[in-house]
Amino acid sequence: MKTVIDSGSTGRLSLSEIIRFKGLLWNLSMRDVLVRYKQTLIGVLWAVVRPAINIAIFVFFSMFIEGGSDLQERIVNVGAGIIIWGLISTSITDVSNSLLNNSNILTKVYFPKLIIPISTLAVCLIDFLISFFILLICKIAINGFPGPEFFLFPVFVLYAILFSFAVGLFFATLNVKYRDIKFTLPFLLQIGFYVCPVFLSSSFYLEKLPSSLAPIFMSNPLVTVIEGFKYCFLGQSFSVDMVYVLSGLCFTLLILIFSLRYFMKFEKTFADFI
């Protein structure tokens, strides 16, 4: 096996290289999962407690703002929104910080750097799955088994991860050189929480927004993700127009391609700047 290190070569995405290091990917993911709730009193229960409290708070606010009286349905609706948003926001945050958090490895051994942001997703996904099953149980207890549309949920979960990874990867690369990200990101996520239909329904947004802003609201790919995920649980109607679904998907893929290229371009210099 011959290896060439050339000053002129530019970073290229090599899937075979990532597959060669799959053992490392697995071990890094396991490390994050194992470490997450070590030395905590209630351990993995935090994955349930945090969203539960959030759901309680925002069910109240949503009743207050949006009106309506069906508390049980509201719990499922807001619960689905909060849980999928939790996956999105923790993935974006963790992926953004992944390179910095692993700088000790980054500066000491060689491996394809993309493994680090990818491995971070595992722990986010596991947290999500725990709260997902709790919500499912609640939903069944409240108003029975969900319809067949429920089995579409992996599509929306995958979409959420894809979007979060694409955005997080861009910030992760930027974070190597500019630590400003740690101040900006929480702020951006907070804005995101209110411009996406997390605890309010998108129909409420469309009702209140001036009609000229409606297309802008709808073209946010996360509207598709969150509405779709709620649809899996509630099974009423999927209210997002197909145009917006497709344009959102294209937009997400563009971000992903851009982020990957940006990451690859600077991959070689990470150890110099971090």
């Binding site: 060439v4 290190i5 050339d6 000053s7 070689k268 210099t269 150890a271 110099d272």
Partner: peptide
């Protein structure tokens, strides 16, 4: 291969 060289080549 932790940092990249500015010039040259290694095999």
């Amino acid at each position: 291969r932790i940092v990249a060289p500015t010039t040259g080549r290694i095999e």
